[in-house]
């Protein structure tokens, strides 16, 4: 199981916190379940972006927000637009991704919506 990896990101989140002077701030949530993720994006002069998040909710949603932001941070806008669920599967395994799809993909979906607003 990838649970230990998930728990590490949950208890020691990477890229968690507000980004001052963010170019885009977007809140995403799964209605009815209470999971919330806010994505912050700041575009640098080199075309790469800084990404961070805030949020609350279940272990999987918050851990995957950390994994997603850590992975996306420093990438170009185009690279983020081309991200799909594959990298998540590589990080957390297909069992968690399949059985907790909405939780696991909340941050990625919010990030991709946010980047299209840049």
């Amino acid at each position: 199981m990838f649970l230990d990896y998930i728990l590490d990101h949950y208890h020691n989140p990477r890229r968690r916190g507000k980004l001052e002077d963010a170019d885009v701030v977007l809140k995403g949530g799964n209605p009815g379940c209470g999971d919330v993720v806010i994505i912050y994006i700041r575009k640098g002069e080199d075309g790469r972006v800084e990404v961070s998040f805030e949020g609350e909710g279940c272990t999987v949603s918050q851990a995957c927000a950390s994994i997603t932001c850590d992975f996306a941070n420093g990438k170009t806008v185009e690279e983020i637009k081309n991200l799909d669920y594959k990298f998540l599967e590589e990080h957390i395994g297909d069992e968690i991704l399949k059985t907790r799809f909405k939780c696991a993909t909340l941050a990625l979906d919010t990030l991709k919506s946010a980047i299209s607003g840049l």
Partner: peptide, 9 residues
């Protein structure tokens, strides 16, 4: 310390 979704899952 454990979210209820995680427990049920």
């Amino acid at each position: 310390g454990v979210h209820p979704h995680d427990v049920a899952w």
